[in-house]
Amino acid sequence: MKIAIIDDEPYSREEMKHLLKKYSWIEVVGEASSAEKGLEIILTKEPDVLFLDIEMPGMSGVELAETLQKMKHKPEIVFATAYPDYALKAFQVDAVDYLVKPFDEEQLDKAVERLKKVVHFETKEETKSLGKLAVQDEDKIVFIKPRDILYISREERETFICTEKKKYTCRLTIKDLETKLNTYPFFRVHKSYLVQLPYVEELIPWGSGVYQLKVHGANEAIPVSRNYVKELRERLEL
């Protein structure tokens, strides 16, 4: 996971770099003392995540976050600031978390766990193999990356793998796929559906404790069995 730190205080940048060293799968790819310089790092280094201060000379962290909303592939944001009063503004620009200085290691652990759920990256364990899934596309076999899967469904005796581009068929059962994909953030919401949590956008009541899911990039509404609703909400909510 590639991280950039944007903070006008050198000590705070050094402290954050020190704290992040304990996560072997995190790489700090750049740091900047202003939002303007940070924007250069974002465009050249393409970090997955920004640890972003709010009060800085010139452009503020919130203003930078608002600018990034226009990007097609914007980095996730964790605000790291001495000012707790900006929390509401931070989450209005879809921040993953909000850390208040001086940094608390336990709070940082929780923020990192949240990042693991929303950022698509491959740990060393996952890259020991190519980690691609074989699916059927008409008369040929196609290999797709698990992180590109929106959801998986089972109809009668056939399994379907749905990506943003296309729906494929697969010879494996949902149970088999759940086991194969256990290092990715998939969740069983129904006996016939497995969804990748970062793509979930809406949970819609459907009567009698039953819900439907709206998944980014998919037109189909996905049923959620009442037995899975509580755990699903716990996995999705902060």
Rank of each mutant, 00 (worst) to 15 (best):
L43P: 01
E201N: 09
I204S: 07
L88P: 01
L99A: 05
F91R: 07
L232S: 06
V29D: 05
A134R: 13
M71H: 08
E237Q: 12
P57I: 07
K72I: 05
K214A: 12
D48E: 08
E15W: 00
E36L: 13
L150S: 03
V29K: 03
S34M: 07
I141P: 01
P102T: 09
D109V: 00
E220N: 11
V215R: 03
M16P: 01
E126K: 14
Y184N: 03
K45A: 14
T183S: 14
E15S: 05
L213W: 06
K166I: 11
V112K: 04
S33T: 10
F143H: 13
A87K: 04
R154T: 12
M56A: 05
A35Q: 06
W206E: 10
S34T: 14
P75T: 02
V135I: 05
F160P: 00
E158A: 00
A134K: 15
H190F: 10
K72N: 10
K230N: 13
E27F: 08
A111Q: 03
D176E: 15
L68T: 04
E156Q: 11
V215N: 03
P47Q: 02
R13C: 10
G30T: 03
A111M: 03
L108I: 14
E122N: 13
W25E: 15
K145D: 15
G207A: 08
A4V: 09
Y151M: 10
A80V: 15
G209V: 03
V62E: 04
T173V: 06
V100Q: 07
E158Y: 07
E122S: 13
F91D: 11
L115A: 01
R226D: 02
N227M: 13
K17R: 15
K191S: 12
E158L: 12
S12T: 04
L236C: 09
E106Q: 14
F91K: 05
I149V: 13
D139C: 12
A221C: 08
E125R: 13
R154Y: 08
V224C: 09
V100W: 04
C170L: 05
V118G: 01
A95Q: 03
G58V: 09
M71L: 15
S225W: 11
A35S: 15
V195H: 06
K89S: 14
C170D: 13
S60C: 06
Q136D: 12
Y184C: 04
G58I: 02
S129M: 11
V189S: 08
P75W: 03
G38T: 02
L238G: 13
E231Y: 05
I26A: 01
N182F: 05
A87N: 06
E125W: 03
L236F: 12
P47G: 02
S12V: 09
I149L: 05
K166A: 09
P10E: 15
D53I: 08
Y199A: 03
L133H: 07
K110R: 12
L64C: 06
A87H: 07
E155V: 13
Y86V: 00
D104Y: 07
L238K: 15
I149D: 01
Y83D: 08
S34Y: 10
W206Y: 14
V135W: 02
E234V: 11
D94G: 00
E76F: 11
G58K: 08
R154C: 12
S153Y: 09
I3S: 04
P223H: 07
K191T: 08
